[in-house]
Design a protein around this nucleic acid. Sequence first.
DNA 1: CCTATTCCGGAACGCTCGTTCTTTTATGCG
DNA 2: CGCATAAAAGAACGAGCGTTCCGGAATAGG
Lengths: 192, 192
Amino acid sequence: MSRVKEFDEAEVLDQALELFRARGFKHTSFNDLVQELGVSRQSLYDTYGDKQALYQTALRRYLDRGLDGIRRKFDDATPVRAAFASFFDTMIAGTCANGSPGCLMVNSMVELSPHDADTRALAQAHAREIEGIFVSRLSLAQRQGEIDKAKDPVALARFFYHTILGLAVASRALGDKASLQQTARLALRILD
Amino acid sequence: MSRVKEFDEAEVLDQALELFRARGFKHTSFNDLVQELGVSRQSLYDTYGDKQALYQTALRRYLDRGLDGIRRKFDDATPVRAAFASFFDTMIAGTCANGSPGCLMVNSMVELSPHDADTRALAQAHAREIEGIFVSRLSLAQRQGEIDKAKDPVALARFFYHTILGLAVASRALGDKASLQQTARLALRILD
DNA sequence: CCTATTCCGGAACGCTCGTTCTTTTATGCG
DNA sequence: CGCATAAAAGAACGAGCGTTCCGGAATAGG
């Protein structure tokens, strides 16, 4: 049926994602997208809807990919300390890549959460999701004697989540990889 | 000499600061400023220069106030643990106030650092400043036997700085005060 | 009181934004 | 082979942006 698309829908979405990640929502104009994605304005509207819809689609894609990675890392087989260490490594490598764009969710939390209820709700849900994964893995670790049973898994999970947020900001604005790794190493000591 | 200003220069600057803090640079239009500060467009330009100059003046004011507060808290007389605990308390109270606007510096780091060299340099300098204060107080604490001498003061300082960043983001986007306090308490355990 | 100087309010400007409309081009199906 | 359908390209639109210009209002100094 009719003419065929001249671009890969998913691939262009990822390019838009990286643009939004690097520059933010407001600082990325539709003209920027048209120009740097190499796709015409009309095609972008036809394919993804308006600018906000494109952003949200990209954000959700980003979050899904991230959560998948986290769930894979925090499976029951991997020791908790190793899981957190590996997670921090991967995250630092990811947020520092390509000119330290940081984390799209963290950037969205700062830029959009206060005046966009959808983004705020998404951020809160995502935070709960991550904390949930951490809590269940930490609880299992307690039952298996990996970490002290006196500790509060929920508090630990939130602590790690907050650490992630801090690293994402530092990565974006300061970009000192060694510092981030140092902090990650120290944060892990909370499990001892 | 001639007519007198109808508004308090410092007071209006603080109001602008709060507006920028809550909404960010791009999301705060000059019309917003005119309307909500109750000062005419021309007067704002005459007094503070253009929008970017106003923002930077407000940011520097904010940073100076913050650094003063930190230096006061981390004087040699106050025990380190108490100083950090008090700092976290004050910070959580401040970033959560008035609808959780977060920290203006952290917001700037996320929104502006990547494409504004001045802001980036300011952020880096500010980070070094805070880390410096922490390092000297932590070193003193080691000499006085308050904390273990085997620990690296620089690493500890960076860890606390990164924790601050995380709390600022969480405060702005999630606004769960109890969680922040919980994390602050856990972070302090790094000194044990 | 008069004048020089500053402040203020509003109209106006040029520009960029996100979005839509129009036209042309290309393709799959009967 | 057309014909219906969808994609792409570009012009165009209204709205909002940051900024400037201008004329009137107010006040301190001579």
